[in-house]
Design a protein around this nucleic acid. Sequence first.
RNA 1: AGGCCCGUAGCUCAGUUGGUUAGAGCGCGUCCUUGACACGGACGAGGUCUGGGGUUCGAGUCCCCACGGGCCUACCA
Length: 889
Amino acid sequence: MAREIPKAYQPQEIEPKWAEYWVAEELFRADADAPPPVFSIVIPPPNVTGSLHIGHMLDHTEIDIMTRWHRMRGDNTLYLPGMDHAGISTQRVVVRQLAEQGIDYRTLGREEFEKRVWKWKDESGGKITDQMRQIGESCDWSREKFTLSPEMSRVVREAFVRLYEEKLIYRAHYLTNWCPDCLTVLSDLEVVHEERQGHLWHIKYPVADANGAAGGKFVVVATTRPETMLGDTAVAVHPEDERYRDLIGKSVALPLTERVIPIIADEAVEREFGTGAVKITPAHDPNDFEMGRRHHLPEINVMAHDGKMNAAAGAYAGLDRFVARKKIVEDLKAQGLLEKVAEHTHAVGLCERSRTVVEPRASTQWFCKMKPLAEPAIAAVERGEIRIVPDNRREEYFNWMRNIRDWTLSRQLWWGHRIPAWYCEESGHVTVARETPAKCATCGSGNLRQDPDVLDTWFSSGLWPFSTLGWPAKTKDFETYYPTTLLITGYDILFFWVARMIMLGIHFTGAVPFRAVYLHSLVRTGSGEKMSKSKGTGLDPVALNQQYGTDAMRFCLASMAAPGTDIVLSDDRLGGARNFANKIWNAARFLFVNLEKFEQGGTRLEELAAPEIRAQAPYGVAGAVPLRDAWIFARLAATVEQVNDALANYRFHDGAQSVYHFFWGDFCDWYIEWVKPELQSEDKESAIVAWRNLFAVFEAALRLLHPFLPFLTEELWHQFPQRAGAKSIALDRFPEVREIWRNHEALEKFGMIQEIITVVRNIRADMKIDPKKKVAAELSIVDDAERASVEADRDGIVRLGMLTDLKISGARLAGTGGVVRSTAKFDLRVEYTETVDVAGESARIAKDMEGLRKAIGSKEKQLGDETFRSRAPEKVVRALEATLAEQRT
RNA sequence: AGGCCCGUAGCUCAGUUGGUUAGAGCGCGUCCUUGACACGGACGAGGUCUGGGGUUCGAGUCCCCACGGGCCUACCA
């Protein structure tokens, strides 16, 4: 480190340098030939619709923490990056952009439009790549993939053709969800439901005789969508409904039209709802569609693709559906056919992307049969071949999978994988093939036309874990890295993506696509909303990274990422994480600034901190490791184990908290403060031991911190002597606990010293003793071994307690005056010549006593209870007794 | 309609099979410009865990009910 180290850590100066270095040196290139164990993870490919948002930051932080941790533990590690073409979303973005320039995308033609989208993809994709590099993701850029690349297209066609040949993909006329804004059908998942206050219109349909003449009677039907009545082809009642029994088989004259439609009986009709009579519109309602099939009713589609009424709507043709609704209600009212209007709250289906009200509409589409795919996928999770974390998402997965319905695959879009199906213009036959066929497979005609539609974008995403590794070829990558180890993504795409990968993965490869899925929380705004760019509630990660530093952002997210709960990011939290980075920076600053002084005595950094020197720590003076060193290494060991355990269970917040507490609380607040004088000691041997141990702990701490704060730790790691050719801390080892680090005794002993110092400080603060004024103190410890240990570290206690002197004995406190406080293990008296605030002191003592009495009381009561003694485990009883014994003294 | 989750300090949240006086960060109060760090240090005040009932020797932790908030699935027109 140079002499002029800034006092405050400035991530902006440091981060870009390493971000570039990591990419340029290709440090994270995976080697499929490297020995196991393997850790492989594929990125949830971000949509090329714009740039990374704060949700991605969380995703990528967690993935990168896991990746770096595994890599440092020596695993054969692959983090595969890539992006998703995001069919509907990306098309919408470009359509909107064109519209802003006054261009209707349809006038451009398909080919030109696709060109425009590719151009956008390059820009947006480039931006995302830049962002990912900026935030230091340790992925293998040589293996980057894009879901719509020619390579991925081949895989998609392969998968489609296989499923078609297996009769799992089929084309059918069915009722689907239509978005009049996106102008495409949607799968059920892309329709979101929203409770809305609406109306239930009760409409009178005149009963007609066989000739269509009205007989003065009416059947009243209730509907929430009056405009669809123009497409009614029947009225249905329950077969056992007494009210309507004699009308079954008769007809009604459909108002506003010339048509006469039958009254049919079907058990699906709920007698309790509305009037018990239902208008049936097979072309515009899922229930009605089914009923229409059962009763062979005609379908009359009354709406065009853009949500306007079509020619079949007669006088209402050309009107927007909601305008038509209003007009129809008015007309009915005018004709006296509107019986009443009731308030009615119901769930309205909206297009996930455009928020437009989705129109159920019968059309011919491609579908994927899901039940046969779902069964093995359910079984795999049941058998534990895939672990879903957190647990409760497992149930959600099962619920959805067990009730799965067929997947509408085709989309009326231009941006996406074109469906590999060709229609013969002569015979009408369909040819589904991997490559463009020359002639019709059935009749041999060369007059073919490819299906204009594209596939749901999630179809290619569903193949991602194996398409990216070279499947269907048996590549080295596929052999080595599939099944992938872990998938980390948000729970909001459990069904869209995760479930489908599991189904398609098992179906095509015979193996699960990943061994575990960790579903993380979502990042929300302060008011609890899901962050969204469109609502302006999104936070810009680039700006935040700039302001606080990427490391701080990562650490902040990690420390809040408790499984199962959403994250609310705040400036306060980010500031706290930034402060932590600054603390680490300054600890390093302390080391190197002091080292300069020490080096003047002729000792070089190499002798104190070379890798082989560090490996032998902790060092002792004349063979004895000083207590503070034994203690910090024991704490380091415990922390390493806590972090390993936390990360193994995706408990990022626990891991983050452990390292925070260790570095700030133990290392900085106690350890550095304790060794300060040793570092410039006259006694050369002690000084060298202090330096060596300090460097060893600090360097190990950097490696421990690295997965969380990669930039800062990389920067500081390079300030240490490293093995020849060592390029990065990211390729160094995660700290491994050495047996001699573990030291329960040191933890106990140093803990007692900390307690003594804390009591001294307490007294000083309570008595308002001038912090700069040193005072005398006296300590009494009954236990010989404990007393000896404390005596050995008397100097430290004196220094950190700001004492002039500390008398230690095993007898009762000899001196008088001053303030006395007692704990289970020791009594302490601090000289205090001023008048003690008796009232305050006795209030404090009284409060202490009160708490203690309560604690003792409850324990005595418990221990006195025979049922407790006989039923509680012995361990608990003994621990209770031990504490009670202490508290009584 | 069915299912799930949450309600713990002023704020945001931890609290893994029930077990000693319930934790963190921020905020707050007192003191400290001591040469790593004021993005700092020392010390401290704040919760009885939404309410009620139950199981248990023992419950923030398990069960039931109520209230409050959120989410997901769902073709009652």
